[in-house]
Nucleic acid binder design. Sequence first.
DNA 1: ATAAATACCTAGGATATCTAGGTATGCGTT
DNA 2: AACGCATACCTAGATATCCTAGGTATTTAT
Lengths: 117, 117
Amino acid sequence: MAARQDLLKGNIDTLLLSLISQQPMYGYQIMRELDGRSQGYFKFKEGTLYPALHRLEKAGLLQGNWRTITSGRQRRYYAITEKGRRILVEQTERWQDFFAAMNLIFRPQKPETQVSK
Amino acid sequence: MAARQDLLKGNIDTLLLSLISQQPMYGYQIMRELDGRSQGYFKFKEGTLYPALHRLEKAGLLQGNWRTITSGRQRRYYAITEKGRRILVEQTERWQDFFAAMNLIFRPQKPETQVSK
DNA sequence: ATAAATACCTAGGATATCTAGGTATGCGTT
DNA sequence: AACGCATACCTAGATATCCTAGGTATTTAT
């Protein structure tokens, strides 16, 4: 059977766009934010996160830039682009449609059960 | 970016278990039911559906059996097993948890926005 | 007779995520 | 000063899921 992580498929990009749209962030921070905000549900692996960020930057949805903090430590901050915001809106609608469709199967609304009492 | 179908990953099995738990069905019927009940959202491909049914039967969550109708046409009807029902309950809870976690990222509940009016 | 719908099946390709490794800096403790 | 841990980034290859694109065969409508 599918594991918990499989539900992520197709949603990681949207999750990242949504989080970063609220505030620019760097990779390590994103992992902690997703963990914290989801109350421990989302535990992103580095092998999932970093390739996803690179993919989104390459697609022009995020813009990354290096910042040096303290005396040499490097961080790559990602900010959402205009294109990214447009895609985020689309993806959010797509997610809502999908959720609605899933619920139509899980909880079928049969006409005969909606007869007025 | 991820396509619509990617959202299916990890959910097809749950979708099938849920549908078949309501009534035993055969493959072709399942395709039409998913399409109809979801108002055209779910258009399962045969290359998706049949391997999934075989996977679920092999895992003991569905039980299939052949029935001959009219003069030779064969249909394979699938019914959910007891094990399948247990898994369905688990997967449904898992789906709800996932939905809740997604929404915590999409619509973060900041404490300061919940101040009493 | 022919086309379309019904009804099943599978091999191989594409792609996303995870596993499991790697490098390097900063900080706290002993 | 040495050590471990947290921070901070990265990638190659394995795995698994779904789709593409093909196939066979029967029934029904034109």
